[in-house]
Design a protein around this nucleic acid. Structure first.
Ligand SMILES: [Mn+2]
Ligand SMILES: [Mn+2]
Ligand SMILES: [Zn+2]
Ligand SMILES: [Zn+2]
Lengths: 145, 145
DNA sequence: GGGGAAGATGAAAATGATATTCAAACAAAA
DNA sequence: TTTTGTTTGAATATCATTTTCATCTTCCCC
């Protein structure tokens, strides 16, 4: 299996785009995290390693990384798009506490299978799906009263 | 069962907010549709009936209608939030053709149950969820080759 | 059926995330 | 190397949504 760096380099070459230190740095920073980073947060981290990098480059690179299949955009309903590395990772969905932001990765084969079946019942070929469960975690429920 | 109008009036009274012609008109316009309207689209429709209404009032009223449980925000990932009347309607999710935009409302009790169970297994109280299935419909698949 | 206080309104300005523009710097193919 | 197309950072623009503010309206008490 190719490394993410290789995948990205190949993707860029395919499109006649260039490999640059900024693009490498951004991918690298993203891979070091296994958090769900917003562009703003990623920009802060990247800036620590290269003081001169610009916000626009972070947004532009995230777009490319997404198109190359290396990362996945997430919507935790907090006003920003977050991203997670997805290359070589098993698909999963998310369970989110709307109070404290706690975020649990979930995967349920029953649900995944039914999604396929549902699509098929309507004559669709399922390409992808989004599923987010929003609720309140145990700790927050206790704190509440 | 109370009418949506009554529900809204009660909701407003409860919060010491006022019933106004603008708020009534917006709810009314929304109920006449069973489409998934964006604030912009709704504003255009409402404006035909009351030339003097402002955008801000539409946004403000959508927020209130959502809080009152009468409508539901949707995220079709096209850059705008859309809304659909949900009072007295059964909950459902959406199956979307990424090629032609066709949008089918789906509901699966197996999935809904597993969502609850999954949340509970992690100590969460499930408040809401988003599930969108993206694929290609039968017609688009045929047209493709 | 009038005050009058609390709320609501529309227009305009502000916000905040993301995208674009532009001139200068750079990558990489030849 | 040279050359050409691409990328960069800073600044500015965009676009959906929210806020501000001065004016108007609702509705509760007399
Ligand atoms: Mn995740
Ligand atoms: Mn559902
Ligand atoms: Zn929590
Ligand atoms: Zn289709």
């Amino acid at each position: 299996m190719k490394s993410p760096q290789e995948v990205f380099a190949d993707f860029l070459a395919d499109r006649n785009l260039k490999t640059t230190p900024q693009r490498r740095l951004i991918l690298d920073t993203l891979l070091k995290q296994n958090d769900h980073l917003s562009p703003e947060e990623l920009y802060a981290k990247v800036k620590k390693r290269d003081k001169s990098i610009g916000q626009a480059t972070v947004y532009r690179t995230l777009k490319l990384l997404n198109e190359s299949g290396l990362i996945e955009p997430l919507d935790f309903a907090d006003g920003v798009t977050r991203y997670e590395p997805s290359y070589g990772e098993e698909h999963h969905d998310h369970l989110i506490c709307e109070r404290c932001g706690k975020n649990i990765e979930i995967l349920d084969t029953v649900i995944e299978r039914r999604q396929e079946e549902l699509a098929a019942e309507h004559g669709f070929t399922l390409l992808r799906h989004k599923m987010y469960l929003y609720g309140m975690c145990g700790e927050c429920r206790k704190k509440k009263q």
